[in-house]
Simulated assay, not measured.
Amino acid sequence: MSAVRVFIFTLLALLAFAGNSLLCRAALIQTSIDPVSFTAVRLMSGALVLWLLISIRTEHNAGQGNWWSALALFVYAIAFSVSYVNLSTAAGALLLFGAVQASMIAYGLWQGERFSLLQSLGFVFACAGLVGLLLPGLSAPPVDAGLLMIMAGVAWGVYSLRGKSGGDPIKVTAGNFIRTVPLALILALVFLDGLLLDLDGVWYAVLSGALTSGLGYALWYTALPYLKASTAATVQLSVPLVAAMGAVLFLAEPFSLRLILASIAILGGIALVTLTARNAKDTT
């Protein structure tokens, strides 16, 4: 694949990741759809698009994946939607991204990886930024919603780590999305009396599932083999900032001083970890 195509696919994938936050937040504040319905429609739409993609690409299109990964994906999706009822787009994206990266870094430490002093400082800064964002104050997001988004980030981190086992990433993702559909339907049945379907909200969910999730993941996994691991980790630093700018432009959300400082601590700390790791590998 040419460098231009890799750049375009990567850029579109990052925009899609930020778009997930914008679409979910817009649906929950501008329409009457509830988080459970949004999640169910999103997962079903993503499963359908990914199934169509693998159907076009291969003759044997049963998909791959497994139930444990599907469960992690489902936990991420429902926690993501419920938390965005009370979180701003920027705060939610920052907490999600920070939790994903922090959980994956923590897993590496648990597996025996060793950090340099700079990497350790970066990890401490990132964790301090997450804690600082949730400390009580006038501009602090609700703690319960914030913790729920952190749970979504940890679940996505688990899903990402499990996805490193190999296989066709698009088929694996399709198989996992397809497995989330019965989980979403069971949850919808449990909360049947509280479901609120809204045509505009459903369209937001369809766009989130089909476009920014299904196609977004497909683009990302297509470009990923052509990116260095450190590059892939570093470029994702832009996602919360893109989501924040989109929220200011399209949802008229403020960007508080607390959020700015937390962004510097979280994104700067993670950048210090990933870039220091890259430099260490380049010198060996």
Score class of each variant (00 low, 15 high):
92 G>T: 11
127 C>K: 09
91 A>D: 11
125 F>L: 15
80 F>W: 02
123 F>S: 06
113 E>S: 12
195 L>V: 08
152 A>S: 15
149 M>V: 10
82 V>A: 08
144 D>S: 15
73 L>G: 05
150 I>P: 09
95 L>Q: 07
121 L>R: 05
178 I>E: 01
198 D>L: 01
109 L>H: 07
171 K>L: 01
128 A>K: 07
170 I>G: 00
155 A>V: 13
181 V>S: 06
90 A>I: 03
123 F>D: 02
85 V>L: 11
78 I>V: 14
153 G>S: 05
165 S>G: 13
132 G>Q: 08
70 A>Q: 09
90 A>K: 07
192 L>Q: 08
147 L>E: 05
157 G>P: 09
132 G>V: 12
149 M>Y: 00
124 V>H: 03
130 L>V: 12
71 L>I: 13
130 L>P: 11
89 T>W: 04
126 A>I: 05
133 L>K: 06
142 P>L: 07
180 T>F: 00
190 V>T: 08
99 A>L: 06
135 L>E: 12
73 L>M: 15
106 A>H: 04
188 A>F: 04
156 W>R: 00
83 S>W: 01
107 Y>F: 12
84 Y>P: 09
67 W>S: 15
82 V>P: 08
192 L>R: 11
82 V>R: 02
75 V>H: 02
92 G>R: 03
94 L>H: 03
145 A>K: 07
196 L>W: 07
116 S>G: 14
134 L>S: 08
97 F>Q: 10
105 I>F: 04
185 L>H: 08
70 A>M: 11
91 A>S: 14
172 V>L: 01
165 S>V: 13
85 V>K: 12
70 A>G: 15
196 L>K: 14
148 L>E: 00
163 G>N: 13
74 F>I: 12
75 V>L: 11
170 I>F: 00
172 V>Y: 02
174 A>F: 01
79 A>Y: 01
163 G>D: 07
81 S>R: 07
155 A>G: 09
139 S>M: 14
138 L>D: 15
90 A>E: 02
185 L>F: 08
199 L>H: 12
143 V>L: 15
185 L>A: 13
92 G>K: 01
191 F>I: 05
119 Q>M: 12
169 P>F: 00
100 V>K: 01
116 S>A: 10
146 G>K: 11
137 G>V: 14
113 E>F: 03
115 F>Q: 12
192 L>K: 08
138 L>Y: 13
182 P>E: 09
155 A>T: 10
179 R>L: 10
121 L>M: 14
192 L>V: 10
198 D>Y: 03
183 L>K: 08
79 A>F: 05
195 L>I: 13
107 Y>L: 13
73 L>T: 09
151 M>S: 15
179 R>T: 03
192 L>P: 02
156 W>S: 00
98 G>M: 05
111 Q>R: 14
171 K>W: 00
165 S>E: 14
69 S>W: 02
76 Y>F: 15
132 G>I: 09
98 G>C: 12
133 L>D: 05
117 L>P: 11
103 S>E: 07
86 N>G: 10
128 A>N: 11
105 I>G: 00
